[in-house]
């Protein structure tokens, strides 16, 4: 694929096809013609492939390492257990750092190609997963791709995976507000059913995380994506030896709850920092059947999210 020219004004711009960088670009004619409103042909393919996927939920955070993938895994497993008549799918669009195969305990599985496309990997009776992790030869393989190639891959994950009938597709994203986020939103936004695409935001209590998360909330507002709410992860640590709790990532500015008030988005709940959970994540074990502080908090959060089903 040709790289986009530097300084590309973007196809939506009034300057599309007219800027200095457009001279010599193979797409100049298409961009500068006002009658041809450019519609990515991929969008129609995605819409056709996803026609039986009723709801899509983006799991976002401006900040990395706050637990987007862990929260995605916990939500999908907990909801799949609570609503066993419904089908759930998980799509990992973190192309450079896919974590879902390990968290879901299906590392090393293969994706099979069938007549109707790639078959996602079954995690449980009613959860299936697709991730670029399944397509890599070794865990050391690096995906050294610029934006356009990542976008192509995301488009394929949406249009060429045989998702079948799903009640909810959870999309685990990389941190930031860049190519992956713009692409997935433009492919999944359905003007006829604007409510089918929503987002939840994950953060930790510290200001350094909230700082990036506020940017992500403003990204959603600019893109007109409804935010179901914010999940605060790694809130309190309970020492396994003495039972006392400590704030490892101190909420100097009031944590997620205060930020939610300030940004006027719903607060869904807090998940504790639980060494048992981090261990389970590394091993890919399902802890949602155990009753502890994490699953109790999860129950409250899932109740709110299940309303969109």
């Amino acid at each position: 694929m040709m790289p986009e020219p530097e300084n590309c004004p973007g196809v939506q711009s009034a300057n599309a096809g007219l800027g200095s960088a457009c001279q010599g670009c193979p797409n100049q004619k298409i961009c500068s013609d006002p009658n041809k409103k450019l519609e990515d042909p991929g969008k129609a393919l995605v819409a056709a492939a996803m026609k039986d996927v009723s709801n899509k939920l983006l799991i976002l955070s401006g900040k990395g390492g706050v637990g987007k993938s862990t929260v995605t895994m916990l939500l999908s497993r907990y909801m799949a257990r609570s609503y066993n008549d419904k089908n759930f799918g998980v799509l990992d669009i973190d192309i450079c750092g896919p974590s879902q195969p390990r968290l879901m305990g299906v590392e090393g599985e293969n994706v099979h190609q069938s007549g109707s496309g790639w078959s996602p990997v079954g995690v449980d009776d009613n959860i299936c997963l697709m991730s670029i992790g399944f397509l890599l030869g070794s865990p050391d393989d690096a995906i050294i791709w610029r934006g356009p190639k990542k976008n192509g891959m995301i488009r394929q994950f949406l249009s060429e995976v045989d998702w079948g009938h799903l009640d909810l597709l959870l999309l685990d994203t990389p941190p930031g507000t860049s190519d992956e986020h713009l692409s997935v939103v433009s492919y999944l936004r359905d003007e006829n059913q604007p409510n089918s695409l929503k987002a939840i935001i994950v953060t930790t209590p510290q200001e350094v995380s909230l700082l990036d998360v506020r940017k992500e909330i403003n990204f959603c507002k600019k893109q007109n994506i409804e935010i179901v709410g914010v999940v605060e992860n790694m809130s309190l640590f309970r020492c396994g030896h003495c039972g006392n709790t400590s704030e490892i990532f101190p909420a100097k500015t009031g944590g997620a709850r205060a930020m939610c008030e300030e940004m006027q988005v719903p607060f869904l709940g807090s998940l504790p920092l639980d060494p048992e959970l981090t261990k389970a994540c590394d091993k890919g074990e399902d802890i949602t059947s155990v009753s502890n502080a994490t699953t109790q908090a999860l129950e409250e959060i899932c109740k709110n999210i299940a309303k969109i089903l």
Binding site: G147, P148, S178, L182, K215, I217, N218, K222, M263
Partner: peptide, 15 residues
């Protein structure tokens, strides 16, 4: 504003 998102694709980030 510290809450402003930078919504850029790759080429702009590269620049």
């Amino acid at each position: 504003n510290r809450n402003d998102p930078v919504i850029w694709r790759g080429p702009k980030k590269t620049m």
